Amino acid sequence: MALHTLWIYAVAVFLLSATPGPNMLHVLSRSVELGVKRTLATMAGCLLGLVTLLAASAVGLGALLHALPGTFTALRIAGAGYLLFLAVKAWRAPVSEDDDVAQTVRPAISGLALFRGGYAIAISNPKAIVFAAAFLPQFIDPARPQASQFAILVAVFAVIEAFWYAVYAFSGRALSRHLGRAGVKRVFNRLTGGLFAGFGLSLLAFRAA
């Protein structure tokens, strides 16, 4: 793989990863709810889920999903169902009022649970496998060993994605300072729920080419 090809790939991934999606929204909402430090486990789970999908596309799972459309449909419906579950959960998130100041109910959540939640939301998007199966090979030099090139592409994707997770996490911390009132916090929860619902419905509407 030529160096200029890798740079083009990195710029493309940087712009793609900046686009808000379920992972970024989950990191943002967790940061608002729990703070940046506790959100690290969520970020790690999302990142591992993403790497799992990219690795799956590298070993040909994307082609397999094309060959078995029923399997893709089942995964798509399951992923959409999980996103819609998160939408309902966010929409109905409890907010208490104390002198017009919202005190968000924060249940005790272990780091492992946060990690699992992040991994689940990342892995629940099977269309990412189809996307990666079409996107990554464009930057592969067929005259060179492909396994090492795929490893480099996945590693670069993971580093850039982690950077954007950090950006969204710190944005969530800054945003939390403006969510002191119960009404504002409730609007944020419902906006988050609406976005998760939108992602879920878009996944239901997605069809592998």
Rank of each mutant, 00 (worst) to 15 (best):
V154Q: 02
I160F: 02
Q138M: 05
I129D: 07
F170W: 14
Y82K: 10
D99Q: 14
G60E: 01
T19Q: 10
L25T: 07
L40F: 14
G60M: 00
L191N: 01
V101E: 10
L83P: 11
G35C: 14
G79Y: 10
A58K: 02
F135W: 06
L53Y: 07
G193T: 06
V130H: 00
M24G: 12
F196E: 10
Q103K: 11
I8N: 10
R186N: 03
L84R: 04
F14E: 02
L40S: 14
A151N: 11
M43G: 07
R186Y: 01
A143E: 15
T73M: 12
L136C: 09
A41R: 05
A87F: 06
V159P: 05
L28H: 07
L204D: 03
G79V: 11
A174S: 15
I8V: 14
G111K: 08
V184S: 15
A166F: 15
S110K: 03
A182G: 08
F163S: 12
F188H: 08
V187A: 15
M24K: 13
S29Y: 05
F14W: 12
A18P: 06
T71D: 13
D98N: 10
I152P: 01
T71E: 12
A87I: 11
V187F: 13
A174P: 12
T73D: 13
D99A: 12
L47M: 04
I129E: 04
Q146N: 09
D141Q: 02
A205L: 13
G60C: 01
L203W: 00
A78N: 02
W91L: 12
F72A: 10
F170G: 03
V51I: 12
L203K: 00
L112V: 15
A147G: 10
L84Y: 06
T5D: 08
L48M: 06
A41C: 07
A67M: 08
V11A: 08
R38A: 15
V88T: 09
G62P: 02
S110V: 08
A155D: 00
Q149C: 09
L50W: 10
V156Q: 01
A174Q: 15
A2Y: 14
V130W: 02
N189L: 02
P20A: 04
P145A: 09
A208G: 14
A182P: 07
Q146S: 15
V13Q: 08
A166G: 14
G183E: 14
R190Q: 15
L195S: 04
A18H: 02
P107E: 14
G198T: 05
V88R: 00
T73R: 07
S96L: 13
F72N: 05
K127R: 14
A169Y: 04
L50A: 11
L204K: 03
I152M: 09
L83W: 10
S148K: 04
I140W: 04
T42H: 03
F206P: 02
Q103A: 11
G118Q: 04
A44V: 14
G111L: 07
E161R: 09
R144G: 13
A74P: 05
I123G: 06
A55T: 13
H4P: 11
R207C: 12
G35I: 09
R207H: 15
N23E: 11
E161M: 08
G194C: 03
L84S: 04
G193Y: 00
R106V: 13
T39L: 06
V27Y: 00
G183W: 06
N125V: 06
A133C: 00
